[in-house]
Design a protein around this nucleic acid. Sequence first.
RNA 1: GCGGCCGUGGCGGAACUGGUAGACGCGCCAGCCUUAGGAGCUGGUGGGGCAACCCGUGGGGGUUCGAGUCCCUCCGGCCGCACCA
Length: 812
Amino acid sequence: MPVERAGIETYDPQTVERKWWERWGERRTNAADLHGAGRPYFNLMMYPYPSAEGLHVGNVFAFVGADVHGRFRRLQGWSVFEPIGFDAFGIHSENYALKVNTHPAELIPQNIARFKEQLKRCGLMLDWDHEVQTIDPRYYKWTQWIFLKLYEAGLAVRKKAPVNWCPECKTVLANEQVISGMCERHPDTAVELRFLEQWFFKITDYAQRLLANHDRLDWSESTRTMQVNWIGRSEGAELVFETPTGVSLRVFTTRPDTVFGATYMVLAPEHPQVDEFTTSEQRGAVNEYRSQAAAMDLVSRRVGEKEKTGVFTGSYARNPASGESVPIWIADYVLMEYGTGAIMAVPGHDERDLEFARKYELEVRQVVRPDDPEEEGIGYTGWDGTLMNSGQFDGMPCAEAVPAITTWLEGQDAGVRQVQYRLHDWCISRQRYWGPPIPIIYCDECGTVPVPEQDLPVLLPPLEDFRPDESGVSPLARVEDWYRVPCPKCGETAHRETDVSDTFLDSAWYFLRYPSTEFDDRPFDKGLTNKWLPVDSYIGGNEHAVLHLMYARFITMALHDLGHLEFEEPFTRFRAHGTIVKDGAKMSKSRGNVVIPDEYIAKWGADTFRMYLMFLGPYQEGGDFREEGISGIRRFLDKVWGLVAAATPGEAGGAYGDALRKLHQTIRGVGNDLEELRYNTAISKLMEYVNVLRASDDGAPVPAALLEPLAIMLGPLAPYFAEESWEQLGHDASVFDAAWPQYDEQLAQEEQIELVVQVNGKVRGRLKVAPGLSQDEAVERALAEESVKRFVEGKDLRKTIHVPDRLVNLVV
RNA sequence: GCGGCCGUGGCGGAACUGGUAGACGCGCCAGCCUUAGGAGCUGGUGGGGCAACCCGUGGGGGUUCGAGUCCCUCCGGCCGCACCA
């Protein structure tokens, strides 16, 4: 028995963790053999944005949970690749740099260094040989390359569009970065509407595939639902209303069955056809309304609080179903971004139209008779009804009327079936400094010219004053010798695109880069990519359900279509972890309840801290962080430490029958739990096992054979501790090169089980019996029990229910 | 308003396809050990009752031999979306 250990009687995490951290480095325990691996397993966690505050406990919770999974897979025999990187470009970093008045090029590397220090203390199985930093030109060269590929394919387009402008960030935001009309980064700042030339990725071309592919992805249901809602597929029809002058006005509706009730129309104020419809008498009023709407930020346009407003254009169009002439209005409750930017208003069966019609005294007509008489009247918006006031369609159920009316209108060229998505194209332009420049050059002669691939990367020029100004133009426009370049086509003087790309583009492909960091001549090596991707397991937060995860899927899909990747979905399995709260409230700086992991790790050790985080609640739900709970984990590890220190060589003898059975039950249970990320119950099963071991044979030394599997099972959760225990038990190699223990169903079998006896569903007795008792025997034994007799005697046994090895229920 | 998740002891949380509610841990109580203990060990710990028993998983109703689990309804909390036609 080797007795040389970290040199102490009692468990001292600092000593143990330092020892094994160094040894992992020497032995390269955590480095994956990317080229030679037999059973590759890509275990991905969401790389962090290196904030100045450093890692917080939420990050640690996320990383440790993913790490537990990776280590478990490794013990199961997979070659696990667990890389990490830093999402270091972006407004987030830039704004912070502005705040502390330090250049991001100086600040961010400092932050990264601090993050690494913290990460290295968490006992993660990270392979640091493949670190990715998005600010590295070796990386963003390929981010720009992806832009060029999408541009060539027509998936990156420049268009003038209404965009979300944050006056605080002084830049455009993606829709996904606008929270209830407020800037994601500045919750007190209302986002304004601006019209700018922007670069867009046509993610909407992929809406249907992004939706449909979910059927074959193993993702957390919550994440899937959020994506499905975000994509927002609606089936309906595009209908055409014509004016007497022959101008067509197209509207999208999900309720073509109610077209006979369309008594007016509404255009969004920005609708391009507004001028066409505005009569000279109404011109003044319309223009005034439009400029009001344009000046308004998106918040003021919001629902609920605000009364609907609008103005009549003076024109009329013909309802293609009823043939009636209906007035055309403009109003800001109709959004230009969705559908055609125009609607047919059916005030009889749409709440918003009804509110508007009442205010402006427009005609309200009932065209649906609800099946439920209590719903009768106007204002019914459900589907359970039949048509009325709808000509030849009267009496037809709504659901049937949708195809019937659509087909009928199609026959008159007045409509067509249509599917609409709420998903918008992805605006990737940012009028800021801290990002990869978009690789485009504008030439007076040649127009928009992509930077030739061999000229990549377009380096971000050093710029002392990178502060954005009111102009709405990126600070890069101020770097004259960078800005002016010869046109790659004709050689005449041209200028660069001055916008940088959205951070979410950086993070939309970082996982593709990890296996291929050794190459500078390709973004991702074909062989390595096919070997390691798609990602086997991705664990991260649901805050990225519709941003990062959607963009990553889109970029992967586009690269697949362009022949650069053989798969179209990047993440085979995705699991969303929960949130750690403090005192029932989300941690936030303003609440002052943010938990910094460092002091806890210093005090308790990484292993105890890791295990505590995994123990405080179901991993996929999160939990409440309370320091008092940590001591329970530490006590547990102390007990294991004591058992291992006193272990005797050899197998489990007769006195350890119960322990051996419990061991096999534990192996089975812990394996199942880890498989499903049920870390909290896995830990409780290990605790139960240790409790049984300690109760065995009056505290005599426990045979090593009962402790070795325990050391292995502790590996994913408490890796340093497991290594030390494993060594103490006589092994030279890393515990992570051991194999996950196998359980024996026979040995796990209880000799005696407790059979519950119920009378009329109430527990009246418990029998100790051998498993496999038949129903007759069970009933007989039950009836013999005193505690049962009392309730059965003198009554007829009407029925007995027998659940083998669980219970008998006697119904009297 | 729509969509999703959730509501269990003093606390965090267990409970597989309906089958012993409260595993495991924290805390608390008692005892042992100790000069001492915010250390360790042993035992106890949902509520009521001396007991037999009775009551208990947010409230109310239902299905079932049997409901924390399924259905209906109401209340409360968290997250996402939010004038999406």
